[in-house]
Write a protein that binds this DNA or RNA. Structure first.
Length: 260
DNA sequence: ATGGCCAATTTGATTGGA
């Protein structure tokens, strides 16, 4: 089963690039972030025509997440538990039944948190506390599960071309990275690092300042696997060349292949 | 962080992103 996470940066602005990518790569599941669309505005038909079931959790203007799947999606839950007052659409989960086993898919768009410190940064850390709690429940279920998406976290200095430039940024501050490690250390496998070591691997390049041309990137899109899911891991790759395409998102897809 | 960006809505300007 091939599963990709992809911050699409506006599904309506990206519909041509997205459908071309779906046809070319044919993921079994695509977890999309930043759809920047309400549920009714989602370009459902063009994606359904390619054989995908679609579940969205959108909001007006920004944020928003969606799951596309060739296989049926079951038990869909929208919104990260833990704060009924939180109106931001950053979490959707569902179960997909593979040939060999079912997998719980959690798709997340973690808050950016800038400027830090400040209320937006407080929201980021509070959101990560809630993610930690949800992660514990997921682990206790002992089913193969993953939490994937745009974490807005640069885990280590080697995950940025210019780590010094990010020192005080909400994506790289010590407290942000510690919150990420606290979740990881519950027992998750970070899929990309389970397969590939060393610097120079990025999933985001800013639109500004020729960042792509200079390979001035950061790695912030991650897939965290429960132990039962990590047992199924066959491969994890970053689809770098997508950033060179026509009217690209500023993120690229990150893939896992699971024996599911 | 920045050599000039990008998407969506609040649209001839602003907000949010990373």
């Amino acid at each position: 089963m091939k599963i990709a996470t992809f911050n699409i940066n506006g599904v309506k602005a990206r519909i041509e690039a997205l459908t071309a990518w779906l046809q070319d790569q044919s993921p079994d599941v695509a977890l999309l972030q930043e759809i920047k669309s309400v549920d009714d505005g989602f370009p459902r038909e063009q994606i359904a025509d390619l054989g995908y079931n679609i579940e969205t959790h959108g909001q007006k203007g920004f944020n928003g997440v969606a799951i596309l799947s060739k296989l049926p999606l079951e038990d869909v839950v929208r919104g990260l538990p833990g704060d009924d007052a939180d109106q931001q659409a950053r979490w959707i989960e569902a179960t997909v039944v593979g040939e060999h086993t079912a997998v719980r898919l959690c798709n997340l768009y973690l808050p950016n948190g800038n400027p830090a410190p400040g209320p937006k940064f407080d929201y980021k850390l509070a959101w990560m506390d809630r993610l930690h709690d949800r992660a514990q429940v997921l682990l206790a279920s002992e089913m193969p599960a993953l939490m994937a998406g745009d974490y807005n976290i640069i885990p280590q200095a080697e995950d940025a071309a210019r780590p010094d430039a990010w020192r005080d940024d909400a994506l790289f501050r010590p407290d942000s990275r510690a919150a990420f490690r606290r979740i990881l250390n519950l027992g998750f496998t970070e899929a990309f690092r389970a397969r590939t070591k060393g610097p120079g691997h990025y999933s985001f390049w800013d639109y500004q300042a020729g960042a792509w041309d200079r390979n001035d990137g950061i790695r912030i899109d991650h897939l965290l696997l429960t132990p039962q899911c990590a047992d199924l891991l066959r491969d994890c790759t970053i689809e770098r060349q997508v950033r060179a395409g026509e009217k690209p998102s500023d993120h690229v897809p990150v893939w896992v292949e699971l024996a599911a």
